[in-house]
């Protein structure tokens, strides 16, 4: 079977597994949605009535089958809390989280890769030490604390950025970017630290290989050796790590959205869990899981572009 077909099949199976897991997890955690909606004062009859309406009184297998079929049609039902289709709710919140994730990814790459190159070139010198200490700190500091400090420094003291207000893209794109700078920076810091460390190690490893000596013996400038020959090979593990960490980026954005009170997926998910709003939670979890799976797929593909050896297998 063709590589892409095989990859697509595993992707599909993973998604199916995720759906099953999502469904099961929510049935296992305690808390009856009918009880949450009606409050502790509700009578057994009221609860039974609502359970019937929600369908939670039916056998689990049946519920799952129905949900699965609907899910493949991108229908995740109606939110219990907001009485609105789940897809609508998610669609309304998605742009915020996506822009947050994309902006921190861009920051990670734009800052992490040059810093990694600088650190590897300045090996053992002051700049390298500085970058190493910086990455240590970046890894050690939790992102929510980083977020609070950023708000304190740039929002409240310097007043460069408005805090706790989000301007939608449709209203004013410039203000939208401005309101996302601090949260995406807070989110990007640990990612940058990881990218810098991986790239530095990977560059130094590549620089010790024989082909670098060959490239130099051909009379190439050091910058050509570095950027044409070494960097592409050195980026391979870095791309993997960026891809793997994308899930972490999403998880981090749940917290960061709370810190910066951004109306994104994260705050929606936390509200949904608090309310036992299981159709909404299921929809959100499926979305997040699917995004991570899709990103991994893209990483795999970019691998094949970067490493011709994998292309053949």
């Amino acid at each position: 079977m063709n590589y892409y077909a095989r990859r697509l099949l595993t992707l599909l199976l993973t998604v199916l597994f995720v759906l099953l897991l999502t469904f099961a997890a929510f049935r296992i955690i305690p808390g009856n949605p009918a009880l949450v909606i009606l409050g502790t004062e509700a009578t057994d009859a009221q609860i039974a009535l609502l359970e019937e309406k929600l369908g939670t009184d039916r056998p689990l297998a049946e519920q799952f089958a129905d949900w699965l079929v609907a899910a493949f049609r991108l229908d995740f039902g109606e939110s219990l809390r907001f009485s609105e289709p789940v897809t609508h709710l998610i669609a309304g919140r998605l742009p915020v989280t996506v822009s947050l994730a994309v902006m921190s990814l861009v920051l990670t790459i734009a800052v992490g890769i040059p810093l990694g190159i600088i650190a590897s070139r300045a090996r053992g010198k002051a700049a390298d030490m500085l970058v190493t200490i910086g990455t240590q700190l970046g890894l050690a500091v939790p992102s929510f604390w980083m977020g609070i400090m950023l708000i304190l420094a740039f929002g409240l003291t310097l007043k460069w950025f408005a805090v706790s207000t989000f301007t939608p893209w449709s209203e004013n794109p410039w203000l939208a970017v401005k309101s996302l700078v601090l949260p995406s920076a807070a989110l990007a810091v640990p990612q940058i630290a990881i990218v810098v460390r991986y790239l530095r190690t990977s560059m130094l490893e590549q620089l010790g290989l024989d082909y670098v000596r060959t490239a130099r013996s051909k009379g190439l400038r050091e910058s050509t050796v570095l950027y044409k020959h070494v960097l592409k090979n050195a980026l391979l593990p870095v791309i993997t790590i960026i891809g793997i960490n994308f899930g972490e980026l999403l998880a981090g954005s749940l917290v960061i959205e709370q810190v910066f009170t951004l109306p994104g997926i994260g705050s929606l998910l936390i509200t949904a869990i608090g309310n036992r709003d299981y159709p909404l939670v299921q929809g959100l979890v499926v979305l997040i899981a699917f995004t991570v799976i899709a990103i991994n797929f893209v990483v795999d593909l970019s691998y094949r572009w970067l490493d011709p050896k994998i292309r053949l297998q």
Partner: peptide, 28 residues
């Protein structure tokens, strides 16, 4: 200087190395 000697590398004086497996760049 490194800059001057680069004009000789690969042009006037060329080298081949022991292990053709590792002395070519596998990514290009």
């Amino acid at each position: 200087t490194d800059r001057d000697i680069r004009a000789f590398r690969g042009k006037e004086i060329a080298m081949i190395f022991q292990d053709p497996m590792s002395s070519l760049n596998h990514g290009l």
